[in-house]
Amino acid sequence: MAALAIGLTTAGGAVAEEGNFLTNMFKYGGPTVPPSQPKDLGEPYCPQVDVPEGGAAIRSFGGKGGDNASLRNQVTLGRIARECNRLADGGLSVKVGVAGQVLLGPAGAPGRFEAPLQISIKYGDKVVATRARRVAVSVAPGEAQGLFTVVEDGLIVPPAMAEDYEIVVTLGGSPAKPAPRKRKPAAPPAEAAGAAQ
């Protein structure tokens, strides 16, 4: 009986050895040790979006600037969301969504408006990635506002900067102006049309 107990203990010791067929079956679900996986780096750093002072709105006036009675329109940022995903090299891919609106002022009129929007990734004073675009917003007749939504994806943060960077969104440049209307070609003069017949 003692010999049997010793035998079982020895066999038990053998089963516990690393790399043993039985151990691998229990631990990994197969006869061999799977290749090592890259270590989990945890949740990616994804800072709140920063809107610089003066970068949340653009106002356009007719006549005397700063007089509310002459305000034509105001473009403002609304909700801003971001999503950060870790890349295989340790860097990040950042996605930013921006919602905003155009409000007509007392001197405003319905139409189509444009405003410059910039989304940047900064590391200290260095701009790592930036996207600039003009958002177009339409305000229909009888309405006082129009809405816009912008989504920018694939803003890349290098691995060395992935734990200490900023996301910056700003409205900037010249004030929002009605988009230039396409002029229709002038109709041919009546005499020329008669001559053609």
Score class of each variant (00 low, 15 high):
residue 79 R to G: 09
residue 75 V to H: 03
residue 69 A to M: 08
residue 149 T to Y: 11
residue 142 G to Y: 04
residue 85 N to W: 13
residue 27 K to W: 12
residue 58 I to L: 15
residue 131 R to A: 14
residue 127 V to Y: 10
residue 114 E to T: 01
residue 153 D to R: 10
residue 144 A to P: 01
residue 30 G to K: 15
residue 113 F to Q: 01
residue 54 G to C: 09
residue 152 E to V: 14
residue 104 L to F: 05
residue 125 D to N: 08
residue 25 M to I: 15
residue 31 P to L: 06
residue 88 A to W: 10
residue 43 E to Q: 06
residue 28 Y to Q: 07
residue 53 E to L: 08
residue 34 P to H: 05
residue 50 D to P: 00
residue 40 D to I: 13
residue 135 V to S: 03
residue 90 G to A: 10
residue 134 R to E: 13
residue 63 G to I: 13
residue 159 P to F: 14
residue 64 K to W: 12
residue 44 P to N: 11
residue 110 P to Q: 07
residue 43 E to S: 04
residue 85 N to R: 06
residue 77 L to Q: 02
residue 96 V to G: 02
residue 57 A to N: 05
residue 80 I to W: 08
residue 63 G to M: 09
residue 99 A to G: 04
residue 36 S to W: 15
residue 34 P to I: 14
residue 151 V to L: 15
residue 114 E to R: 12
residue 49 V to A: 01
residue 148 F to V: 09
residue 147 L to P: 00
residue 43 E to T: 12
residue 157 V to H: 00
residue 99 A to M: 04
residue 40 D to F: 13
residue 81 A to H: 03
residue 114 E to D: 06
residue 31 P to G: 10
residue 136 A to H: 10
residue 92 L to V: 04
residue 33 V to E: 09
residue 112 R to V: 14
residue 70 S to A: 05
residue 77 L to M: 04
residue 94 V to R: 10
residue 152 E to Y: 05
residue 117 L to P: 02
residue 94 V to A: 02
residue 103 L to V: 09
residue 30 G to A: 15
residue 78 G to Q: 08
residue 110 P to R: 06
residue 86 R to K: 05
residue 90 G to N: 14
residue 44 P to D: 11
residue 148 F to T: 03
residue 65 G to M: 02
residue 144 A to T: 13
residue 150 V to T: 12
residue 93 S to Y: 05
residue 116 P to R: 15
residue 25 M to W: 14
residue 136 A to L: 14
residue 98 V to H: 00
residue 60 S to R: 07
residue 90 G to F: 12
residue 143 E to Q: 07
residue 157 V to E: 05
residue 33 V to H: 05
residue 30 G to Y: 14
residue 160 A to V: 12
residue 85 N to H: 14
residue 133 R to S: 15
residue 101 Q to K: 12
residue 130 T to N: 13
residue 45 Y to P: 00
residue 50 D to R: 06
residue 64 K to T: 12
residue 63 G to V: 12
residue 99 A to Q: 10
residue 109 A to F: 06
residue 81 A to L: 07
residue 141 P to G: 07
residue 159 P to H: 12
residue 159 P to L: 14
residue 119 I to W: 00
residue 139 V to C: 04
residue 71 L to Y: 06
residue 144 A to H: 04
residue 100 G to N: 10
residue 152 E to G: 08
residue 59 R to K: 03
residue 116 P to D: 14
residue 109 A to I: 05
residue 142 G to V: 03
residue 124 G to I: 10
residue 124 G to F: 08
residue 74 Q to A: 11
residue 124 G to M: 04
residue 93 S to N: 10
residue 160 A to Q: 09
